[in-house]
């Protein structure tokens, strides 16, 4: 694998190989000595043009576990605020001898530009671009689901036959988009649920079902329900009357959670707006995979960094 730009690009074989590789990485977490020497002497720059805590730290932890040298770049307080272009920033950094670039950018498609314009000649990993994709999040969600369902018998398996509902602010969510592609590629059936104003206008491009009534969807007891964060920073017009009404209609409230099947897993990519799209009872329940998702993020990102930097053909 040369780059990881989009979950839609991943074949079923490649996706499963990455998840299996992440299982191997997860095993090393139980060892007294957690660090692997695989990327010793390689330098990775994390280009974060957009705020992020968990994704940046997760990537950094993954890279350090593999012994890579890590340079963190945040656009705030950098030359970007002096007007430097993406091209110049990337070329400047790679001129310093960087072996791979992880990029988070507010504009959809920025990682594609970086990978395909010939500006730089190193692997590029998309850590979230605008409202487009967040492939490592989808991989860690798939990994978490697979582990919860199959436990230690996860290797070589897809997510065939599982039903997953992704709920809330779908149209602003790169997490929803990446998951829609990846979970479907792995054999799951995905339903996107939300107010009509927050669902995609052109639905033909998505291999998924759409619904607007969350209670109807939950009544069919899906294997997992993934609550999305309401992205206030991306909302520039009124998509729903007010937060309270949104929470009552499309949030995982305590009443909804109590009525839900005890076998339905509760997922959230974080950071959560507790009390808005998800109640604390659900978030802190045994059905919740939210902290598993954070822990698994490191393993999945280790697998991705290893795959792009060692040019493994299988992955």
């Amino acid at each position: 694998m040369r780059h990881l730009l989009s979950a839609a690009d991943l074949s079923r074989e490649t996706a499963i190989a990455l998840l299996d590789s992440a299982e191997v990485m997860a095993e090393t977490a139980d060892r007294p000595h957690k660090k692997l020497p695989a990327l010793r002497g390689r330098t990775i720059v994390n280009l974060f043009f957009e705020d992020s805590t968990r994704t940046r730290i997760s990537f950094e932890a993954a890279q350090k576990r593999l012994s890579a040298d890590v340079i963190n770049f945040a656009a705030k307080g950098s030359s970007v605020s002096k007007g430097e272009s993406l091209k110049d920033t990337a070329q400047t950094l790679t001129a310093m001898g960087v072996d791979a670039v992880v990029i988070r950018h507010g504009s959809s498609g920025a990682p594609h530009l970086l990978a395909n314009r010939g500006w730089i000649d190193v692997p590029v990993v998309n850590a979230g671009d605008g409202t487009h994709e967040h492939p490592t999040q989808a991989l860690l969600d798939a990994f978490t689901l697979r582990r919860r369902v199959y436990g230690h018998d996860s290797r070589c398996r897809g997510l065939d036959g599982l039903r997953v509902a992704i709920v809330g602010d779908v149209s602003h969510s790169r997490v929803a988009r990446s998951n829609a592609w990846l979970l479907t590629t792995l054999g799951a059936t995905v339903t996107l649920v939300g107010p009509p104003t927050l669902l995609p206008h052109d639905r033909s491009a998505f291999p998924v079902n759409f619904a607007t009534n969350l209670d109807d969807v939950l009544r069919e007891s899906p294997d997992a329900v993934m609550m999305l964060r309401i992205q206030k920073e991306r909302m520039h017009s009124a998509f729903f009357p007010n937060e309270r009404e949104f929470g009552l209609t499309w949030g995982l409230t305590a009443e909804r959670f109590a009525a839900m099947s005890p076998h339905t897993l509760v997922m959230h990519p974080g950071p959560m707006n507790r009390g808005l799209e998800i109640c604390s009872v659900a978030a802190d329940s045994p059905q919740s995979t939210i902290l598993d998702q954070v822990a698994n993020g490191v393993f999945v990102r280790m697998a991705v960094m290893f795959a792009v930097l060692t040019g493994n053909e299988d992955v």
């Binding site: 191997v24 390689r42 930097l309 060692t310 040019g311 299988d314």
Partner: peptide, 17 residues
């Protein structure tokens, strides 16, 4: 993960220890 030729050759996938 411990090979010294990881940067030169396409490696085979890792398998569990």
């Amino acid at each position: 993960m411990y090979r010294d030729d990881l940067s030169d050759n396409p490696t085979r996938s890792t398998s569990p220890s």
